[in-house]
């Protein structure tokens, strides 16, 4: 009788551990997706801790940097569970996804949904893609707008907008062949540089440097650099310095990519 009771208790404990492991897996997927979609490390740490507490953790130890997330959950009815997720790609910003996760987190804080429902919701948000035509339109508006903003003429803006669409095409086609972000940005800059230099040669009245600056805004990690400094000031020093160094290397890769066509054409 005692051995049966003990076996039942052990089985229940194993089930609970499995449950919390599955929950942690979802938490890390949320964290990874938020981070690669543009959320700051602060926001990700806050969100994961809040969801964990909503699911019965008496304490949550969450450590997130731009390349890794480590979460330990201390449930009241089970032993502590720790999981780690390596984040390999910096991803691309998608604030509608961040917003959806933020809403999901608030919903779970009010009334925790079942693990199955949470898994479905997380999968649905992760698979949500921003419309491609809006991404192209965004590239056109941003490149054209900033070419004029930095002192270009209307013609420079129009050509920068056209080149912006090409940059967007390159970004979407070159990602899968690039082994890392440095090569990816170098290739994008190289392709864009050739097109812009050719435009400069074909239309002598335009300013290729202004067109280039407009299109560089699409690629240059200025926002990432600014956020890295904010992270350093906010006390997330490791994340901040990692991202700051990465952005400097990325900017170097971009400059090299843009310089080669300028030398050749």
């Amino acid at each position: 009788m005692t051995s049966t009771m003990s076996a039942l208790q052990t089985g229940e404990r194993v089930n609970r551990i499995e449950y919390y492991n599955a929950l942690m897996n979802q938490l890390l997927t949320i964290g990874e997706s938020m981070l690669t979609s543009g959320a700051g490390v602060n926001k990700v740490e806050e969100t994961l801790a809040a969801i964990g507490r909503a699911y019965g953790a008496s304490r949550m130890d969450v450590f997130v940097i731009t390349s890794c997330a480590i979460v330990t959950m201390y449930p009241e009815d089970s032993c502590a569970v720790t999981q780690t997720r390596r984040i390999l790609s910096p991803g691309s910003p998608n604030f509608s996804r961040v917003e959806a996760f933020s809403k999901l987190s608030k919903e779970c804080e009010r009334t925790p949904i079942t693990l199955e429902e949470l898994t479905d919701r997380v999968e649905s948000i992760v698979s949500r893609q921003y419309p491609e035509k809006l991404i192209y339109l965004g590239s056109v508006l941003a490149a054209g707008g900033f070419a004029v903003f930095f002192g270009g003429t209307l013609m420079d803006g129009i050509l920068a907008a056209a080149a912006g669409a090409f940059v967007c095409y390159c970004q979407r086609r070159l990602a899968w062949i690039s082994p890392n972000q440095v090569v990816y940005l170098f290739l994008c800059a190289l392709c864009a540089g050739f097109v812009i230099s050719a435009m400069g040669a074909a239309f002598p009245a335009v300013h290729p440097d202004m067109i280039m600056i407009g299109d560089i805004m699409l690629l240059i990690p200025g926002v990432a650099m600014t956020h890295s400094v904010r992270d350093i000031l906010a006390g997330d020093t490791i994340s901040g310095f990692m991202r700051l160094l990465e952005t400097i290397v990325w900017a170097g890769a971009l400059a090299c990519g843009f310089m080669i066509p300028m030398w050749l054409i």
Binding site: F95, V98, I220, V223, A255
Partner: peptide, 25 residues
């Protein structure tokens, strides 16, 4: 909604894209 969703695109005119490019150039 997260404030960063509005802040990040709104602050782009200040982002030193041009000067970062000129530095590397």
């Amino acid at each position: 909604i997260p404030a960063s969703a509005i802040y990040t695109p709104a602050v782009v005119p200040l982002v030193p894209g041009a000067s970062l490019y000129y530095t590397m150039n």
